[in-house]
Design a protein around this nucleic acid. Structure first.
Lengths: 210, 210
DNA sequence: ATGCTTCTGTAACACTTGTTACTGCACGTG
DNA sequence: CACGTGCAGTAACAAGTGTTACAGAAGCAT
């Protein structure tokens, strides 16, 4: 565990902090597609990603959902920070995008480290920072882009996160993430294919030039 | 200045911190409608609101804009925190919604206080926390609500912020904030009036029952 | 191969929002 | 008062997105 920690966080945290993390944290492995936390769940610990990627979704009262952003290795979930601080329930759903390994750290340690380690403070601030930026980006996307552009962005992001130009998704899954309907996705994807930007196959979309 | 600080932040910060703020901060008064910071400006200090309210807007490349949220007394702008940390330019525009008084604190003090004062750390975290929540709310609004519901929410919020059921706005101004067109706003407002929810006058909308 | 299930393609239509154009009203100014 | 300017109301139409319905293709299990 220490080796993996060193790899993902060594350049951020001093030795002493790394050791404390290793000591009180527990490894958690999650398979692609598995749900990590649900809307309304209580937050029991704070995740530090070692590898893999996680998809963060927002849900409204009617069960409609919307992809907010992805988090990757070296990130933590600022929403979780948020919940820890506020002692509130989760405002989001988290689903493993790929097979993922993370370290879960007890909430109690957070405040202690914040006082003791400057590097930890910076990390927490930096997490908030990047999360706010992601949220701004999400807002730009849904406020200023049309659905076809949103689909293009979605495919780009997903291809990048998975390190594979072949995106494994059904049209229905894309529709859920973008909070639209399957028919709309099919329609626009077909148009993108005719424009030579993608290649459609069953359960898979090959990104050519987006 | 110390009196006002005490009033707005006395329950948050210890005496020593309040004194330091009073010492190195400078008062800034802004009239309603005045622009405080522009997209792309460099951030020179961190604002602590004493009274009034500020409107935070996002702008895309084409000059289209969108209201993100309001901040009020006792708040600071987490976006500014963000920029301070990252040494980056402003990602937003800030406009005084009402006449506003704030204290500007030099960025340099931030990190120092973060290390020295637990209350300051908590304040900064709390600011990030509430800003993330506001952003989530904004996302919910634009992702899950129709334009008529967004207008209703807008009028509710604006009436609350100004402490006045008479909202002083032209349809065009509302259209800018919601990133839609004047005609659409007029159309939907008229429908709301027919439903008895509001009363329309020139340059003013009276909120009756939203 | 047969049948079953899931995924995709497509048409037809409804609804929401955006656009253009024109009208008249309210208000301030000379 | 007459005039100009900005604001609001409305119609007609365009574009984008959402909904329903159905057909066919792909893959899986037997």
């Amino acid at each position: 565990m220490m080796t993996e920690l060193q790899e993902a966080y060594g350049f951020l945290f001093e030795r002493e902090l790394l050791e404390e993390i290793a000591e009180c944290g527990s490894i958690r492995k999650i398979n692609a597609g598995e749900r990590i936390i649900e809307f309304g769940d209580y937050v029991t610990g704070m995740p530090l990603l070692l590898n893999g990627a996680i998809k963060i979704l927002r849900e409204d009262g009617d069960g409609d959902e919307l992809l907010l952003y992805f988090i990757e290795r070296g990130d933590t979930c600022a929403m979780t920070l948020n919940c820890c601080m506020g002692q509130t329930k989760s405002e989001i759903r988290a689903v493993a995008e790929t097979d993922t390994t993370m370290i879960m750290v007890p909430i109690a340690k957070m405040e202690e480290w914040t006082a003791r380690f400057k590097s930890w403070r910076n990390f927490v601030f930096e997490s908030y920072h990047s999360r706010l930026s992601e949220m701004l980006d999400t807002i730009d996307t849904i406020a200023f882009l049309n659905m076809d552009q949103r689909i293009m962005k979605y495919l780009r992001d997903k291809a990048k996160i998975n390190g594979d130009e072949n995106v494994q998704s059904t049209h229905q899954q894309i529709a859920y993430d973008l909070h639209t309907s399957r028919v709309v996705v099919s329609r626009l994807l077909k148009k993108l294919e005719l424009d030579g930007k993608i290649k459609l196959q069953r359960n898979q979309i090959k990104v050519i030039d987006l």
